[in-house]
Design a protein around this nucleic acid. Structure first.
Lengths: 232, 232
DNA sequence: GCAAATTAATGATTTATTCAAG
DNA sequence: CTTGAATAAATCATTAATTTGC
Protein backbone atom coordinates (compact mmCIF):
# COMPACT_ATOMS: atom_id res chain seq x y z
CA UNK A 1 0.00 0.00 0.00
CA UNK A 2 1.08 3.40 0.32
CA UNK A 3 2.51 3.84 -2.93
CA UNK A 4 3.15 7.30 -2.84
CA UNK A 5 1.84 10.18 -1.13
CA UNK A 6 1.20 12.62 -3.67
CA UNK A 7 0.69 16.08 -2.92
CA UNK A 8 -0.29 18.25 -5.50
CA UNK A 9 -0.96 21.59 -5.81
CA UNK A 10 -3.74 22.87 -7.35
CA UNK A 11 -5.48 25.44 -8.76
CA UNK A 12 -8.58 25.13 -10.25
CA UNK A 13 -9.99 25.45 -13.47
CA UNK A 14 -13.38 25.20 -14.48
CA UNK A 15 -14.95 23.40 -17.16
CA UNK A 16 -18.17 24.04 -18.60
CA UNK A 17 -20.13 21.80 -20.42
CA UNK A 18 -23.72 22.10 -20.57
CA UNK A 19 -25.46 19.46 -21.98
CA UNK A 20 -26.00 18.62 -25.41
CA UNK A 21 -28.46 16.15 -26.47
CA UNK A 22 -31.98 16.11 -25.63
CA UNK A 23 -33.74 12.95 -25.35
CA UNK A 24 -36.48 11.48 -23.48
CA UNK A 25 -35.28 9.14 -21.02
CA UNK A 26 -36.68 6.01 -21.58
CA UNK A 27 -37.03 5.06 -18.16
CA UNK A 28 -34.61 4.77 -15.66
CA UNK A 29 -35.06 1.83 -13.75
CA UNK A 30 -36.44 1.76 -10.48
CA UNK A 31 -34.99 -1.04 -8.78
CA UNK A 32 -32.82 -0.88 -5.92
CA UNK A 33 -30.91 -3.58 -4.61
CA UNK A 34 -29.57 -4.47 -1.41
CA UNK A 35 -26.42 -6.07 -0.75
CA UNK A 36 -26.51 -8.75 1.81
CA UNK A 37 -23.60 -8.53 3.87
CA UNK A 38 -20.08 -8.91 3.67
CA UNK A 39 -18.49 -8.79 6.85
CA UNK A 40 -15.03 -8.13 6.72
CA UNK A 41 -12.41 -7.83 9.07
CA UNK A 42 -9.96 -5.44 8.04
CA UNK A 43 -6.78 -4.29 8.83
CA UNK A 44 -6.78 -3.38 12.28
CA UNK A 45 -5.30 -0.16 12.29
CA UNK A 46 -2.75 -0.30 14.75
CA UNK A 47 -1.59 0.67 18.03
CA UNK A 48 -4.07 -0.94 20.19
CA UNK A 49 -3.06 -4.24 21.41
CA UNK A 50 -3.81 -7.31 19.56
CA UNK A 51 -7.37 -7.31 18.85
CA UNK A 52 -8.62 -10.50 20.07
CA UNK A 53 -11.99 -9.40 19.22
CA UNK A 54 -11.63 -10.87 15.85
CA UNK A 55 -14.96 -11.91 14.89
CA UNK A 56 -15.14 -15.14 13.16
CA UNK A 57 -18.00 -14.06 11.19
CA UNK A 58 -18.59 -16.12 8.30
CA UNK A 59 -19.04 -14.96 5.09
CA UNK A 60 -21.58 -16.79 3.45
CA UNK A 61 -22.24 -14.69 0.84
CA UNK A 62 -24.97 -16.49 -0.43
CA UNK A 63 -27.91 -15.15 -1.88
CA UNK A 64 -28.33 -11.92 -3.16
CA UNK A 65 -31.71 -10.80 -3.34
CA UNK A 66 -32.36 -10.60 -6.91
CA UNK A 67 -35.71 -9.33 -6.56
CA UNK A 68 -35.61 -6.03 -8.04
CA UNK A 69 -38.49 -7.06 -10.02
CA UNK A 70 -39.00 -7.69 -13.57
CA UNK A 71 -38.76 -4.23 -14.48
CA UNK A 72 -35.75 -3.97 -16.43
CA UNK A 73 -35.35 -1.94 -19.31
CA UNK A 74 -37.87 -2.45 -21.83
CA UNK A 75 -35.77 -1.37 -24.66
CA UNK A 76 -35.40 -4.80 -25.88
CA UNK A 77 -33.01 -3.91 -28.43
CA UNK A 78 -29.73 -4.79 -27.17
CA UNK A 79 -27.67 -6.55 -29.57
CA UNK A 80 -24.62 -7.31 -27.86
CA UNK A 81 -22.06 -8.32 -30.15
CA UNK A 82 -20.33 -10.49 -27.90
CA UNK A 83 -19.76 -11.70 -24.51
CA UNK A 84 -20.83 -9.96 -21.49
CA UNK A 85 -23.58 -7.77 -20.53
CA UNK A 86 -26.38 -9.99 -21.15
CA UNK A 87 -29.50 -8.83 -19.73
CA UNK A 88 -28.85 -10.91 -16.81
CA UNK A 89 -29.05 -8.06 -14.52
CA UNK A 90 -31.23 -9.90 -12.19
CA UNK A 91 -28.61 -11.10 -9.88
CA UNK A 92 -28.38 -7.47 -9.85
CA UNK A 93 -25.16 -6.81 -8.35
CA UNK A 94 -23.13 -4.34 -10.09
CA UNK A 95 -23.35 -2.54 -13.30
CA UNK A 96 -21.80 -4.32 -16.14
CA UNK A 97 -21.36 -1.94 -18.99
CA UNK A 98 -21.90 -2.87 -22.58
CA UNK A 99 -19.48 -2.04 -25.29
CA UNK A 100 -21.65 0.72 -26.54
CA UNK A 101 -21.92 2.26 -23.15
CA UNK A 102 -18.21 2.15 -22.62
CA UNK A 103 -17.68 3.54 -26.06
CA UNK A 104 -19.87 6.51 -25.44
CA UNK A 105 -18.41 7.15 -22.06
CA UNK A 106 -14.91 7.09 -23.42
CA UNK A 107 -15.92 9.34 -26.18
CA UNK A 108 -17.24 11.81 -23.68
CA UNK A 109 -14.16 11.43 -21.61
CA UNK A 110 -11.91 12.04 -24.50
CA UNK A 111 -14.06 14.97 -25.30
CA UNK A 112 -13.03 16.42 -22.04
CA UNK A 113 -15.74 15.51 -19.66
CA UNK A 114 -14.50 14.61 -16.26
CA UNK A 115 -17.03 15.30 -13.62
CA UNK A 116 -20.45 15.58 -15.12
CA UNK A 117 -22.97 17.37 -13.06
CA UNK A 118 -26.31 16.01 -12.14
CA UNK A 119 -28.05 17.04 -15.27
CA UNK A 120 -25.38 15.70 -17.44
CA UNK A 121 -25.38 12.47 -15.59
CA UNK A 122 -29.04 12.28 -15.99
CA UNK A 123 -28.89 12.72 -19.68
CA UNK A 124 -25.99 10.45 -20.18
CA UNK A 125 -27.73 7.84 -18.17
CA UNK A 126 -30.78 8.19 -20.29
CA UNK A 127 -28.75 7.69 -23.40
CA UNK A 128 -26.77 4.80 -22.16
CA UNK A 129 -29.91 3.25 -20.89
CA UNK A 130 -30.68 2.41 -24.45
CA UNK A 131 -27.90 -0.04 -24.52
CA UNK A 132 -28.41 -1.72 -21.25
CA UNK A 133 -29.39 -1.22 -17.74
CA UNK A 134 -27.64 1.58 -16.04
CA UNK A 135 -28.12 4.05 -13.28
CA UNK A 136 -26.90 7.53 -12.68
CA UNK A 137 -24.49 6.48 -10.03
CA UNK A 138 -22.82 4.18 -12.47
CA UNK A 139 -22.07 7.06 -14.72
CA UNK A 140 -20.89 9.11 -11.84
CA UNK A 141 -18.59 6.38 -10.62
CA UNK A 142 -17.36 5.61 -14.05
CA UNK A 143 -16.02 9.08 -14.52
CA UNK A 144 -14.58 9.11 -11.10
CA UNK A 145 -12.79 5.87 -11.57
CA UNK A 146 -11.75 6.42 -15.10
CA UNK A 147 -10.28 9.74 -14.32
CA UNK A 148 -8.37 8.39 -11.37
CA UNK A 149 -7.11 5.41 -13.26
CA UNK A 150 -6.05 7.30 -16.28
CA UNK A 151 -4.17 9.52 -13.99
CA UNK A 152 -2.33 6.79 -12.25
CA UNK A 153 -1.65 5.02 -15.46
CA UNK A 154 -0.11 8.12 -16.81
CA UNK A 155 1.87 8.67 -13.73
CA UNK A 156 3.16 5.19 -13.85
CA UNK A 157 4.17 5.68 -17.40
CA UNK A 158 5.86 8.89 -16.86
CA UNK A 159 7.81 7.41 -14.05
CA UNK A 160 8.73 4.42 -16.05
CA UNK A 161 9.80 6.49 -18.92
CA UNK A 162 11.69 8.74 -16.70
CA UNK A 163 14.20 6.09 -15.99
CA UNK A 164 15.04 6.30 -19.61
CA UNK A 165 14.38 9.78 -20.49
CA UNK A 166 15.13 12.21 -17.80
CA UNK A 167 12.70 14.52 -19.19
CA UNK A 168 9.29 13.31 -19.75
CA UNK A 169 7.52 15.36 -22.19
CA UNK A 170 4.34 16.62 -20.73
CA UNK A 171 2.50 14.45 -23.09
CA UNK A 172 0.77 17.54 -23.98
CA UNK A 173 -0.13 16.40 -27.35
CA UNK A 174 -1.94 13.21 -26.94
CA UNK A 175 -3.33 14.11 -23.69
CA UNK A 176 -4.32 17.40 -24.84
CA UNK A 177 -7.46 18.57 -23.35
CA UNK A 178 -9.34 19.52 -26.33
CA UNK A 179 -12.08 21.84 -26.09
CA UNK A 180 -15.25 20.36 -27.01
CA UNK A 181 -17.44 22.86 -28.43
CA UNK A 182 -21.04 22.67 -28.51
CA UNK A 183 -23.24 24.30 -30.94
CA UNK A 184 -24.56 26.11 -28.09
CA UNK A 185 -21.47 27.33 -26.71
CA UNK A 186 -20.77 24.48 -24.50
CA UNK A 187 -17.23 24.21 -23.93
CA UNK A 188 -15.57 21.58 -22.09
CA UNK A 189 -12.22 22.13 -21.02
CA UNK A 190 -10.60 20.05 -18.59
CA UNK A 191 -7.07 19.35 -18.16
CA UNK A 192 -7.55 16.89 -15.55
CA UNK A 193 -6.36 19.40 -13.20
CA UNK A 194 -6.40 18.23 -9.72
CA UNK A 195 -8.93 20.44 -8.18
CA UNK A 196 -11.56 22.01 -9.87
CA UNK A 197 -13.99 22.22 -7.15
CA UNK A 198 -17.33 22.84 -8.39
CA UNK A 199 -20.31 23.41 -6.40
CA UNK A 200 -22.46 20.49 -5.86
CA UNK A 201 -25.91 20.53 -4.67
CA UNK A 202 -27.52 17.70 -3.01
CA UNK A 203 -31.09 17.20 -2.40
CA UNK A 204 -32.69 15.25 0.21
CA UNK A 205 -35.85 13.61 -0.61
CA UNK A 206 -37.64 13.53 2.60
CA UNK A 207 -39.90 10.61 2.59
CA UNK A 208 -42.46 10.78 5.15
CA UNK A 209 -41.61 13.27 7.65
CA UNK A 210 -44.08 12.57 10.23
CA UNK A 211 -47.00 12.40 8.14
CA UNK A 212 -47.69 9.63 5.88
CA UNK A 213 -48.45 11.72 2.97
CA UNK A 214 -45.62 12.83 1.07
CA UNK A 215 -45.19 16.39 1.14
CA UNK A 216 -45.90 17.92 -1.97
CA UNK A 217 -42.89 19.18 -2.62
CA UNK A 218 -39.71 20.10 -3.51
CA UNK A 219 -38.66 19.79 -6.85
CA UNK A 220 -37.38 17.08 -8.74
CA UNK A 221 -33.82 17.39 -8.62
CA UNK A 222 -31.88 14.36 -8.96
CA UNK A 223 -31.33 12.60 -5.88
CA UNK A 224 -28.83 10.15 -5.02
CA UNK A 225 -27.79 9.13 -1.70
CA UNK A 226 -25.67 6.60 -0.16
CA UNK A 227 -27.80 4.35 1.81
CA UNK A 228 -26.34 2.17 4.35
CA UNK A 229 -29.01 -0.35 4.85
CA UNK A 230 -27.32 -2.15 7.44
CA UNK A 231 -23.99 -2.44 8.80
CA UNK A 232 -22.30 -4.42 6.28
CA UNK B 1 -10.52 -5.02 -22.30
CA UNK B 2 -9.09 -2.01 -23.49
CA UNK B 3 -10.17 -2.53 -26.86
CA UNK B 4 -12.58 -0.02 -27.95
CA UNK B 5 -12.12 1.56 -31.14
CA UNK B 6 -14.48 0.90 -33.82
CA UNK B 7 -17.44 2.04 -32.11
CA UNK B 8 -20.03 3.45 -34.06
CA UNK B 9 -20.45 6.85 -33.14
CA UNK B 10 -23.84 7.04 -32.05
CA UNK B 11 -24.71 10.39 -32.23
CA UNK B 12 -26.94 11.09 -29.65
CA UNK B 13 -28.16 14.31 -29.84
CA UNK B 14 -31.48 14.68 -28.76
CA UNK B 15 -31.95 16.34 -25.57
CA UNK B 16 -34.71 16.34 -23.48
CA UNK B 17 -35.57 15.90 -20.10
CA UNK B 18 -38.97 16.83 -19.69
CA UNK B 19 -39.60 19.77 -17.81
CA UNK B 20 -40.77 19.13 -14.50
CA UNK B 21 -43.97 17.68 -14.74
CA UNK B 22 -46.73 18.46 -12.70
CA UNK B 23 -45.00 19.32 -9.72
CA UNK B 24 -44.79 22.55 -8.08
CA UNK B 25 -41.29 23.02 -7.30
CA UNK B 26 -41.63 24.45 -4.06
CA UNK B 27 -38.43 24.22 -2.54
CA UNK B 28 -35.08 23.09 -2.28
CA UNK B 29 -33.35 24.68 -4.87
CA UNK B 30 -34.24 24.04 -8.17
CA UNK B 31 -31.41 25.06 -9.81
CA UNK B 32 -31.45 23.15 -12.80
CA UNK B 33 -31.11 25.01 -15.72
CA UNK B 34 -31.73 23.91 -19.07
CA UNK B 35 -30.03 24.93 -21.95
CA UNK B 36 -32.20 24.05 -24.77
CA UNK B 37 -29.75 24.04 -27.28
CA UNK B 38 -29.28 22.15 -30.22
CA UNK B 39 -27.64 19.04 -30.84
CA UNK B 40 -24.09 18.80 -30.56
CA UNK B 41 -21.40 17.60 -32.45
CA UNK B 42 -19.25 15.43 -30.65
CA UNK B 43 -15.96 14.47 -31.18
CA UNK B 44 -15.85 12.64 -34.18
CA UNK B 45 -13.94 9.68 -33.56
CA UNK B 46 -10.61 9.88 -32.38
CA UNK B 47 -7.52 8.73 -33.85
CA UNK B 48 -7.54 11.44 -36.27
CA UNK B 49 -4.74 13.54 -35.37
CA UNK B 50 -5.12 16.74 -33.71
CA UNK B 51 -8.32 17.99 -34.83
CA UNK B 52 -7.90 21.48 -35.56
CA UNK B 53 -11.53 21.78 -35.56
CA UNK B 54 -11.43 22.55 -31.99
CA UNK B 55 -13.26 25.64 -31.60
CA UNK B 56 -12.45 27.51 -28.57
CA UNK B 57 -15.80 28.73 -28.15
CA UNK B 58 -16.25 30.62 -25.13
CA UNK B 59 -19.03 30.61 -23.13
CA UNK B 60 -19.65 32.83 -20.55
CA UNK B 61 -22.17 31.19 -18.93
CA UNK B 62 -23.28 33.29 -16.49
CA UNK B 63 -24.39 32.78 -13.22
CA UNK B 64 -26.57 30.37 -12.09
CA UNK B 65 -28.48 31.70 -9.53
CA UNK B 66 -30.08 28.95 -7.83
CA UNK B 67 -32.52 31.22 -6.51
CA UNK B 68 -34.05 28.51 -4.62
CA UNK B 69 -36.25 31.06 -3.25
CA UNK B 70 -37.12 31.62 0.23
CA UNK B 71 -39.05 28.64 0.45
CA UNK B 72 -37.85 25.95 2.46
CA UNK B 73 -39.12 24.58 5.47
CA UNK B 74 -42.30 25.89 6.50
CA UNK B 75 -41.87 24.77 9.99
CA UNK B 76 -41.92 28.22 11.16
CA UNK B 77 -40.56 27.46 14.41
CA UNK B 78 -36.99 28.18 14.39
CA UNK B 79 -35.73 29.62 17.49
CA UNK B 80 -32.29 30.45 16.84
CA UNK B 81 -30.59 31.88 19.74
CA UNK B 82 -27.85 33.68 18.24
CA UNK B 83 -25.95 34.86 15.35
CA UNK B 84 -26.13 33.25 12.10
CA UNK B 85 -28.50 30.81 10.86
CA UNK B 86 -30.99 33.32 10.19
CA UNK B 87 -33.22 32.51 7.46
CA UNK B 88 -30.79 34.19 5.30
CA UNK B 89 -30.18 31.17 3.38
CA UNK B 90 -31.37 32.84 0.28
CA UNK B 91 -28.03 33.37 -1.14
CA UNK B 92 -28.19 29.77 -0.55
CA UNK B 93 -24.76 29.23 0.58
CA UNK B 94 -24.04 26.80 3.19
CA UNK B 95 -25.63 25.34 6.19
CA UNK B 96 -25.14 27.25 9.29
CA UNK B 97 -25.97 25.07 12.22
CA UNK B 98 -27.67 26.34 15.30
CA UNK B 99 -26.54 25.50 18.76
CA UNK B 100 -29.29 23.02 19.23
CA UNK B 101 -28.40 21.27 16.07
CA UNK B 102 -24.78 21.06 16.97
CA UNK B 103 -25.65 19.93 20.42
CA UNK B 104 -27.78 17.12 19.19
CA UNK B 105 -25.27 16.08 16.63
CA UNK B 106 -22.51 15.98 19.18
CA UNK B 107 -24.69 14.05 21.48
CA UNK B 108 -25.25 11.51 18.80
CA UNK B 109 -21.61 11.48 18.00
CA UNK B 110 -20.62 10.94 21.55
CA UNK B 111 -23.21 8.27 21.66
CA UNK B 112 -21.23 6.44 19.09
CA UNK B 113 -22.81 7.38 15.85
CA UNK B 114 -20.31 7.86 13.11
CA UNK B 115 -21.79 7.18 9.77
CA UNK B 116 -25.54 7.28 9.96
CA UNK B 117 -27.33 5.48 7.26
CA UNK B 118 -29.95 6.98 5.09
CA UNK B 119 -32.79 6.38 7.43
CA UNK B 120 -30.96 7.75 10.32
CA UNK B 121 -29.95 10.77 8.38
CA UNK B 122 -33.48 11.27 7.42
CA UNK B 123 -34.68 11.16 10.94
CA UNK B 124 -31.94 13.27 12.28
CA UNK B 125 -32.56 15.82 9.62
CA UNK B 126 -36.20 15.89 10.47
CA UNK B 127 -35.41 16.48 14.08
CA UNK B 128 -32.83 19.09 13.49
CA UNK B 129 -35.08 20.75 11.03
CA UNK B 130 -37.03 21.94 13.97
CA UNK B 131 -34.24 24.17 14.96
CA UNK B 132 -33.33 25.60 11.67
CA UNK B 133 -32.94 24.92 8.06
CA UNK B 134 -31.00 21.86 7.33
CA UNK B 135 -30.72 19.21 4.71
CA UNK B 136 -29.70 15.62 4.75
CA UNK B 137 -26.39 16.28 3.19
CA UNK B 138 -25.52 18.63 5.99
CA UNK B 139 -25.96 15.87 8.48
CA UNK B 140 -24.04 13.55 6.30
CA UNK B 141 -21.17 15.93 5.94
CA UNK B 142 -21.18 16.89 9.54
CA UNK B 143 -20.53 13.37 10.64
CA UNK B 144 -17.97 12.89 8.00
CA UNK B 145 -16.09 15.99 8.96
CA UNK B 146 -16.50 15.65 12.65
CA UNK B 147 -15.23 12.13 12.59
CA UNK B 148 -12.24 13.07 10.54
CA UNK B 149 -11.43 16.04 12.64
CA UNK B 150 -11.79 14.29 15.91
CA UNK B 151 -9.49 11.71 14.58
CA UNK B 152 -6.80 14.07 13.56
CA UNK B 153 -7.14 16.00 16.72
CA UNK B 154 -6.65 12.84 18.63
CA UNK B 155 -3.73 11.87 16.54
CA UNK B 156 -2.12 15.16 17.12
CA UNK B 157 -2.63 14.78 20.81
CA UNK B 158 -1.34 11.31 20.99
CA UNK B 159 1.73 12.34 19.12
CA UNK B 160 2.26 15.26 21.31
CA UNK B 161 1.82 13.19 24.36
CA UNK B 162 3.97 10.51 22.98
CA UNK B 163 6.98 12.60 23.35
CA UNK B 164 6.31 12.24 26.99
CA UNK B 165 4.65 8.97 27.28
CA UNK B 166 5.81 6.32 24.90
CA UNK B 167 2.57 4.61 25.02
CA UNK B 168 -0.47 6.57 24.43
CA UNK B 169 -3.40 5.14 26.13
CA UNK B 170 -6.13 4.51 23.66
CA UNK B 171 -8.20 7.08 25.32
CA UNK B 172 -10.69 4.39 25.47
CA UNK B 173 -12.73 5.98 28.09
CA UNK B 174 -13.77 9.25 26.78
CA UNK B 175 -13.85 8.14 23.33
CA UNK B 176 -15.70 5.07 24.10
CA UNK B 177 -18.14 4.08 21.52
CA UNK B 178 -21.26 3.55 23.40
CA UNK B 179 -24.19 2.04 21.86
CA UNK B 180 -26.82 4.46 21.17
CA UNK B 181 -30.19 3.04 21.24
CA UNK B 182 -33.04 4.72 19.74
CA UNK B 183 -36.56 4.40 20.72
CA UNK B 184 -37.08 2.64 17.58
CA UNK B 185 -34.60 -0.01 18.14
CA UNK B 186 -31.96 1.65 16.20
CA UNK B 187 -28.70 0.84 17.56
CA UNK B 188 -25.68 2.50 16.50
CA UNK B 189 -22.43 1.07 17.22
CA UNK B 190 -19.36 2.27 15.78
CA UNK B 191 -15.91 2.22 16.93
CA UNK B 192 -14.60 4.49 14.42
CA UNK B 193 -12.83 1.72 12.78
CA UNK B 194 -11.34 2.68 9.54
CA UNK B 195 -13.22 0.55 7.13
CA UNK B 196 -16.40 -0.76 7.67
CA UNK B 197 -17.73 -0.70 4.27
CA UNK B 198 -21.36 -0.60 4.26
CA UNK B 199 -23.53 -0.99 1.39
CA UNK B 200 -24.85 2.06 -0.15
CA UNK B 201 -27.69 2.28 -2.42
CA UNK B 202 -28.27 5.12 -4.63
CA UNK B 203 -31.41 5.87 -6.23
CA UNK B 204 -32.09 7.85 -9.17
CA UNK B 205 -35.28 9.55 -9.03
CA UNK B 206 -36.46 9.29 -12.50
CA UNK B 207 -38.93 11.87 -12.67
CA UNK B 208 -41.69 10.58 -14.54
CA UNK B 209 -41.41 6.98 -14.95
CA UNK B 210 -44.32 6.43 -16.99
CA UNK B 211 -46.93 6.85 -14.52
CA UNK B 212 -47.50 9.77 -12.44
CA UNK B 213 -48.10 8.04 -9.24
CA UNK B 214 -45.22 7.36 -7.21
CA UNK B 215 -44.64 3.87 -6.41
CA UNK B 216 -45.61 3.15 -3.05
CA UNK B 217 -42.52 3.76 -1.54
CA UNK B 218 -40.61 0.71 -1.77
CA UNK B 219 -38.06 1.63 0.54
CA UNK B 220 -37.23 4.91 1.61
CA UNK B 221 -33.88 5.50 0.39
CA UNK B 222 -32.50 8.84 0.69
CA UNK B 223 -31.21 10.40 -2.28
CA UNK B 224 -28.49 12.79 -2.70
CA UNK B 225 -26.71 13.79 -5.69
CA UNK B 226 -23.95 16.04 -6.48
CA UNK B 227 -25.04 18.68 -8.78
CA UNK B 228 -22.54 20.87 -10.33
CA UNK B 229 -24.48 23.80 -11.37
CA UNK B 230 -21.63 25.60 -12.68
CA UNK B 231 -18.12 26.07 -12.14
CA UNK B 232 -17.94 27.65 -8.86
C1' DG C 1 -14.18 -29.29 -23.59
C1' DC C 2 -15.88 -27.79 -18.94
C1' DA C 3 -15.56 -25.95 -14.22
C1' DA C 4 -13.00 -24.86 -10.19
C1' DA C 5 -9.01 -21.84 -9.12
C1' DT C 6 -6.46 -17.65 -10.28
C1' DT C 7 -5.68 -13.33 -11.88
C1' DA C 8 -6.77 -8.94 -14.04
C1' DA C 9 -10.12 -5.23 -14.30
C1' DT C 10 -12.92 -2.22 -12.68
C1' DG C 11 -17.39 -1.00 -10.15
C1' DA C 12 -18.53 0.89 -5.54
C1' DT C 13 -17.20 2.91 -0.96
C1' DT C 14 -14.75 5.05 2.42
C1' DT C 15 -11.08 7.99 4.09
C1' DA C 16 -7.86 11.77 3.45
C1' DT C 17 -7.10 16.43 1.57
C1' DT C 18 -8.13 20.57 -0.01
C1' DC C 19 -10.89 24.81 -0.79
C1' DA C 20 -13.14 28.49 0.69
C1' DA C 21 -17.35 30.78 3.12
C1' DG C 22 -18.24 33.21 7.31
C1' DC D 1 -9.47 30.15 12.37
C1' DT D 2 -13.45 27.14 12.11
C1' DT D 3 -15.74 23.99 9.44
C1' DG D 4 -19.21 23.05 5.54
C1' DA D 5 -18.50 21.25 0.99
C1' DA D 6 -16.12 18.79 -2.71
C1' DT D 7 -12.68 16.17 -4.84
C1' DA D 8 -8.99 12.83 -5.06
C1' DA D 9 -6.73 8.82 -3.23
C1' DA D 10 -6.99 4.42 -1.19
C1' DT D 11 -9.59 0.31 -0.66
C1' DC D 12 -12.74 -3.17 -0.83
C1' DA D 13 -15.49 -6.38 -3.55
C1' DT D 14 -17.33 -8.33 -7.83
C1' DT D 15 -17.21 -9.84 -12.12
C1' DA D 16 -14.85 -11.19 -16.65
C1' DA D 17 -10.78 -13.23 -18.25
C1' DT D 18 -7.36 -16.77 -18.00
C1' DT D 19 -5.29 -20.67 -16.51
C1' DT D 20 -5.21 -25.34 -14.85
C1' DG D 21 -6.63 -30.12 -13.72
C1' DC D 22 -9.27 -33.77 -15.20
Amino acid sequence: MGIEGSMKVHQFARGFWDQHMHEPPSLTLGCKRFRPLAPKQLITTSTTTTSESTVPIFDLKSFIRPESGPIKIGSSDYHKKESAQVETHPGGTRWNPTQEQIGILEMLYRGGMRTPNAQQIEQITAQLGKYGKIEGKNVFYWFQNHKARERQKQKRNSLGLNSHSPRTPPSSILNTPLLLSDTKGDVVKDEDSPYKRKCSTWTFEGLEEEKGYCTEDEDRTLKLFPLHPEGR
